[in-house]
């Protein structure tokens, strides 16, 4: 399916991930990153995909039985001294299904989940080289957070 087929995004259902979706989720991630991380995704499913917690969200976008994209996030309390806020740490859409508003639908859905969990701020972290993702989150209205991520080599 291409983005041209997905112009009518009302046919898209955003719902919590199910175990049967994992194969397609892994394939979408592998297509984007070039790395097949099967164990990692099963671990994420067990931590985020069971739907038992309002604090942890693992959502997929489904169209006629095909998983077109996913988003994962959680509410983190007092991380680095910051009041509770939602963190989005993974989002992806099949390359052929992009530019049809799916990413926005996924993002809106997880934000609704975060609001339901009682937080009013959402954060994410993007590599400054990843212009595609930076442009996407900017287009959703995200601005630089009042924190700076720092690192150093331990060599």
């Amino acid at each position: 399916m291409t983005s041209a087929d997905l112009k009518d995004t009302t046919a898209i259902v955003i719902r919590p991930v199910e175990a049967a979706d994992l194969g397609q989720v892994i394939a979408i991630d592998a297509e984007s990153t070039g790395i097949q991380k099967t164990d990692y995704w099963y671990e994420l499913f067990h931590r985020f995909g069971t739907g038992h917690s309002r604090q942890r969200l693992f959502l997929v976008a489904e169209s006629e039985g095909t998983i077109q994209g996913f988003i994962i996030g959680e509410v983190r309390d007092w991380e680095f001294g910051s009041p509770s806020c939602g963190w989005v740490f993974a989002i992806d859409v099949r390359p052929g299904a992009r530019l049809a508003g799916l990413g926005t639908k996924l993002f809106d859905s997880i934000c609704a989940g975060f609001r339901h969990a009682g937080v009013d701020t959402v954060r994410t972290q993007v590599s400054r080289d990843n212009n595609l993702m930076l442009s996407f989150v900017r287009s959703q209205g995200m601005m630089a957070a009042p924190v700076i991520t720092l690192e150093m080599s331990l060599d």
């Binding site: 400054r128 080289d129 212009n131 930076l134 442009s135 900017r138 287009s139 209205g141 630089a144």
Partner: peptide
């Protein structure tokens, strides 16, 4: 410089118009 470039390079005119509207 790198942070500045990443910021300006990720904000499209459409995104800016949304910000203006806000």
């Amino acid at each position: 410089d790198e942070i500045t470039k990443a910021t300006f390079g990720s904000i499209t005119i459409e995104t800016m118009l949304k910000l203006v509207e806000k």
